[in-house]
Design a protein around this nucleic acid. Structure first.
Length: 391
DNA sequence: ATGTTC
């Protein structure tokens, strides 16, 4: 257990074994962030990598203020896993790949009634970003059909309503332009100083943030429904978990605010930790929950990795891979899956080579006593974008 | 990450 938990400073821990690659700049950013006023604990996950000033793949605990810049622009970004009714045995990859011509367009009128009622049910009153609702976006966002590669815990697998004969659908997306607009407005007023809990705008930010989280959840739901519709299947949501958000939390008896930036909550039930498009994803059971005796909640801050973690920066991947792989080489992966990605830059930026092997990240969390694995999922078809310009 | 880049 101890070999996968590094104590970086007095209040900074890192969930990673000594041989897991973590970029030096990411550690520097982690330490720098731990020195912000009112920062009590910081925990880096094994997928930690550098971001713009603050690291990605980490959780931050404050007591009397929040830092919207730590959450970032993609408020509510997360992962949802759906069990579909589509049979794995009937998959024809090339036929499947052609079914998603329309999924980046705004939802048409046939969705209006559903969208309107779901917005009311989720308490979403904002309408400015309706055109983006139900769309994946760019960057590392995707929708991926998967198949079960191996089941480690059959009881839990069955209890969750999963079926290995049928495809799963994993959706990674967030709050699109809505979250971005909330962060931009906040930074314009407060720069990176954060908001104290008694600031007149504290509740206003939190209300906007919470609405963006619900908007992102609805976005993933609509993306999943539209991908299911495209293949004429139906499905059920098995897990949905946000990894970019700030929420109230008690840590070691202290009431405060837990920021997660690319950090999956361990106190919200089962979660999926996705690998790159050429790697397995893992359905896992978090072990540090509100029921766990308080031995060391500040070590992982009720958080887990949100993926395999970037190894290479965005923008440098084409240069690193271009001489070895032509564009056509990247539409299939080593696991036999198919990739739909009309954007050349995204095709390279999100290549499997740009990410760490997910198994090392999973193993670090197992060794740290944070998770057990329920099932391993294999990518079948990853959808990024159809067109060059929409990414 | 981003109704997408001046």
């Amino acid at each position: 257990m101890d070999k996968s938990v590094q104590k970086i400073t007095n209040n900074v821990s890192l969930i990673a074994s000594a041989d897991t690659w973590i970029e030096g700049l990411a550690i520097e950013q982690l330490i720098k962030t731990s020195n912000l006023p009112d920062m009590h604990y910081v925990a880096g996950m094994p997928d930690l990598h550098p971001g713009r000033g603050y690291p990605i793949g980490a959780a931050f605990f404050t007591q009397n203020k929040i830092y919207p810049a730590l959450v970032g622009n993609d408020i509510g970004c997360g992962m949802s896993l759906w069990q579909t009714s589509a049979k794995v045995s009937k998959v024809n990859l090339e036929r499947l790949a052609k079914k998603f011509a329309h999924v980046e367009q705004p939802l048409d009128e046939s969705w209006s009634a559903l969208v309107a009622s779901r917005k009311v049910e989720k308490g979403i009153n904002i309408h400015n970003y309706d055109r983006a609702l139900g769309t994946i976006g760019g960057g590392n966002h995707f929708a991926e059909f998967q198949a079960i590669e191996h089941i480690y815990d059959h009881t839990t697998f069955d209890t969750l309503g999963l079926n290995k004969k049928h495809l799963q659908l994993l959706v990674h997306s967030g709050s699109r332009g809505l979250g971005q607009s909330i962060l931009v407005e906040h930074i314009a007023n407060y720069n990176h100083h954060g908001l104290t809990v008694d600031d007149k705008n504290f509740h206003s930010y939190m209300n906007q943030h919470n609405e963006a989280v619900r908007w992102a959840e609805l976005n993933r739901e609509l993306i999943a429904l539209r991908f299911l519709d495209a293949i004429r299947a139906n499905g059920n949501c098995v897990v949905d978990i946000n990894h970019n958000l700030v929420s109230a939390k008690n840590i070691e008896g202290k009431a405060g605010w837990l920021h997660r930036k690319g950090a999956t909550p361990s106190d919200k039930g089962y979660v999926v930790i996705p690998g790159s498009r050429g790697d397995y994803s893992y359905l896992v059971k978090p072990l540090i929950t509100d029921e766990t005796p308080t031995q060391s909640h500040n070590i992982s801050l009720f958080s887990l990795a949100h993926g395999a973690g970037r190894k290479w920066k965005r923008g440098e991947c084409h240069g690193r891979l271009g001489h070895k792989y032509k564009r056509e080489d990247l539409y299939r992966t080593a696991l036999g899956s198919r990739v739909v990605c009309g954007s050349k830059e995204l095709l390279y930026d999100e290549a499997p080579q740009a990410y760490k092997k997910c198994e090392t990240v999973i193993q670090d969390m197992i060794d740290a006593g944070l998770i057990t694995v329920i099932a391993k999922l294999r990518p079948v078809l990853t959808f990024k974008t159809n067109g060059e310009c929409s990414a």
